[in-house]
């Protein structure tokens, strides 16, 4: 009869496999948790980007319409808008909003292009 040495745990001992298994399960769930939180953060970021895009599009349409129809006055409610004049780049909460008019902000170019912020909430074209 073969003399086989038994590799079982003694009472009170935990086998290395169990420790590995618990470690892997913990790693798995912590990764799921991490990605869940990360996904939540991404959703917030995506929502913020979408909001900024809506403001940007409203603003861009307003500026283009105003450029097409000189003399038209337009007031658009926006969020936190910053205009880097005369570079024609508007930033909405750090979201760059391009305007397809090179000299936007340089009023010598056109009649209507002076955009100004009122109470940090409204932009007047």
């Amino acid at each position: 009869m073969r003399n086989v040495k038994k590799n079982w745990c003694s009472r009170g001992q935990v086998s290395i496999e169990i420790i590995f298994a618990i470690g892997i399960i913990m790693l798995f769930f912590s990764t799921i948790l991490y990605y869940s939180f990360d996904k939540g953060r991404d959703n917030d970021l995506h929502q913020q980007i979408q909001n900024n895009r809506i403001i940007c599009n409203t603003l861009r349409n307003g500026i283009v319409e105003a450029a097409i129809l000189p003399g038209m006055s337009k007031e658009i409610s926006t969020g936190n808008v910053r205009i880097n004049s005369p570079s024609s780049l508007i930033q909405i909460n750090d979201y760059p909003c391009k305007i397809p008019l090179r000299a936007f902000g340089n009023s010598s170019g056109y009649n209507i292009t002076t955009a100004k912020i009122t109470n940090n909430e409204k932009i007047q074209i």
């Binding site: 349409n61 319409e65 450029a67 097409i68």
Partner: peptide, 10 residues
């Protein structure tokens, strides 16, 4: 798309 539309308008 939106930008192209704005350019077309101009």
């Amino acid at each position: 798309q939106i930008y192209g539309h704005a350019i077309t308008q101009i």
